[in-house]
Amino acid sequence: MLTFILRRILVMIPQLLLLSVIIFLLAKAMPGDALTGAFQGNPEANAEHMEELREKLGFNDPWYEQYGRWVTNFVQGDMGMSYVHKQKVTSLLGNRLSNTVLLSLTTMITIYLIAIPLGIIAGRWNNSWADKAIVTYNYFSIATPVFIFALIMLFIFGFYFSWFPTGRSVDITIQNGTWDYFVSKANHLVLPTLSGAIIGTAGTIQYLRNDIIDTKLKDFVKTARAKGVPEGRVYTRHILRNSLLPIAAFMGYEITLLISGSVFIESIFSYPGLGQLFIQSIQTRDFTVVSALVMISGAAVIIGTMLSDIILSIVDPRIRID
């Protein structure tokens, strides 16, 4: 197991280096630079002054020198300066990272709370009315874009009924650390979490349903039934144990996918996380922040894939990649 983990980490290093090169070159290929967004709409800005700043900040250096500085600083925890927000990128991201992680975790937990029971019901009693209703719900989830569903949820439960807040992550008038603060935090999470979870259950439900149906027909299940094993034990010890393994293995990848894919949800609900910051940074041409966010998201996917492989090798005793 240790050999497998070390091997996966060594494979991950060149992947991250290649990702960093691609991100940096794409950022350099975009029109303008960090100063363009910082001085956008500033009547006092002039071309001569901006050119002096570019020379001073090293924006006119060859791309490989700029890349070397960027990677070296990034590894040391220095992601550069946001010239739009006038603060270090690490500080800017730190204020929003906790919100995105909290939203992603609550969304993932809600996805599994909905998807696993529905997948088990649909797979165990396939072709029943319950299975047909769940499959219909699945088709709805797959066909509906998340931003459309989020807008519908926002309009109905945020504006029409006014049951939940329509923006921010907490009521700013409430003191931090109090019970009312945590209640407000949870209240602000309801709509974004449900919007992402209800649409995000389709893959897990369909995969679990199909795997249960396939597992029911395998020889070891038929043998267990022939030996007189109770039906409930057949499902819990033989069918579900094998069908849930891939779901557990996919968990590491899904966590990072939610963290990096919360752009639409955070933007629609004005939720102050990394996704909302990403959209704002693109609009203001804050390329330092954009590069850092894309690098973090790409690294999260690579690390999540590695975690999924490790989880699968742990939960499935048949897999030993040593």
Rank of each mutant, 00 (worst) to 15 (best):
N95E: 15
V101C: 09
Q15R: 04
I302L: 13
A224N: 10
V234M: 07
A202H: 09
E44Q: 14
K56G: 09
I174M: 08
Q283P: 01
L16W: 01
Y235N: 06
H188V: 06
R96W: 06
R233A: 13
R241Q: 12
Q175H: 10
M1T: 09
H188D: 06
F149T: 03
F161E: 06
R69H: 12
H49E: 15
L26A: 13
D171S: 10
E44H: 10
S291I: 04
V229N: 03
A299Q: 06
I205D: 00
S91E: 15
L19A: 12
P14E: 02
W70Q: 00
I22L: 14
F59C: 07
D219R: 10
D309C: 05
I198R: 00
Q66Y: 08
L217Q: 15
P117N: 03
T236A: 13
A27H: 03
W163C: 05
K216N: 12
L18K: 05
G228N: 08
T3N: 12
G261Q: 09
I314R: 08
S20R: 00
F74Y: 11
A29D: 08
H85E: 12
M30Q: 10
T178H: 07
E65M: 13
T256Y: 00
D214I: 11
I174F: 06
T193D: 03
L2K: 12
K28G: 05
